[in-house]
């Protein structure tokens, strides 16, 4: 997810370098008083203290959002005519750097608090009851786009693997080194989808082939693509952007 532009094509080749630079700057400078200390001329203390406060508030905001989350409230759905074309590509790297996964020997790993850790082939995932949705993808940057995703309800998958539904988190490790995690309540939401299709065809690499989690009740960066492993845990798993400062819950 770029922090620079909503038009990935223009800065695509600069994005990884810029993202790395921004990330490096972040821990040192970003949560400092920055502009404010220059405006007030005051030094309010160590940057680390300010950053700690912001992290504590962000964890508090996770709890507030978990309380606001209604497991039965559905995200609005749209007619297919409302689909945004082309649907924007977004990742922490450029579109041409997207790893291309060979689906024929793909095996989804399952680990953590589950009864059945047998890896899943794409054929077996396709054999699960399939559904589709036309929903709005909202990026943390502010832009939004409507897309259509098809696949298996994630709840069904979790039931199949005998996941401990009382566990706190479901984590995702991806083939592009991305990682993220969501709360169990959201994982069990009826619209949370283990997506195999975009539109009416198999996911193309840029939209996350072979497997993407579609969560219309969370911001876009909580929708991991190119999923290689799913695990259930009670230990806070964090995420690629979440560990750098994006709010973890990020519910819509």
């Amino acid at each position: 997810m770029s922090i620079l532009t909503r038009k990935p094509s223009k800065l695509a080749d600069l994005r990884p370098a810029l993202a790395r630079l921004e990330r490096r700057l972040f821990m040192r400078q970003a949560l400092s008083f920055g502009a404010l200390s220059m405006l007030t001329g005051c030094n309010w203390g160590e940057d680390d203290d300010i950053e700690k406060v912001l992290w504590v508030v962000s964890r508090f905001n996770d709890k507030v959002q978990a309380a606001l989350f209604d497991p039965n409230k559905l995200a609005p759905v749209y007619p297919e005519s409302a689909i945004t074309k082309p649907f924007p590509f977004n990742a922490f790297y450029g579109e041409d750097e997207t790893p291309v996964i060979d689906g024929s020997d793909y095996k989804l790993q399952v680990s953590g608090l589950v009864e059945d850790k047998t890896p899943w082939t794409l054929a077996r995932l396709r054999a699960l009851p399939q559904t589709s949705q036309v929903t709005r993808h909202i990026c943390v940057e502010g832009w939004s786009a409507i897309g259509k995703w098809g696949g298996a309800p994630f709840r069904t998958f979790l039931q199949q693997v005998g996941a401990d539904m009382r566990a706190k988190y479901v984590g995702f490790k991806c083939a592009d080194k991305y990682y993220s995690s969501i709360d169990m309540a959201t994982a069990l939401h009826p619209q949370t989808l283990l997506a195999l299709d975009y539109g009416d065809a198999e996911l193309p690499p840029k939209y996350g082939y072979p497997l993407k989690l579609r969560v219309p009740t969370k911001l876009g960066f909580k929708n991991p693509k190119l999923i290689a492993e799913i695990y259930v845990t009670n230990d806070f798993p964090g995420g690629y952007w979440e560990d750098q400062g994006y709010n973890w819950f990020s519910g819509s």
């Binding site: 922090i3 920055g34 508030v57 943390v140 940057e141 400062g245 994006y246 709010n247």
Partner: peptide, 10 residues
């Protein structure tokens, strides 16, 4: 304020 998007959102 914030330096980057994550800082600004925080």
């Amino acid at each position: 304020l914030g330096g980057w998007l994550g800082g600004a959102l925080a």
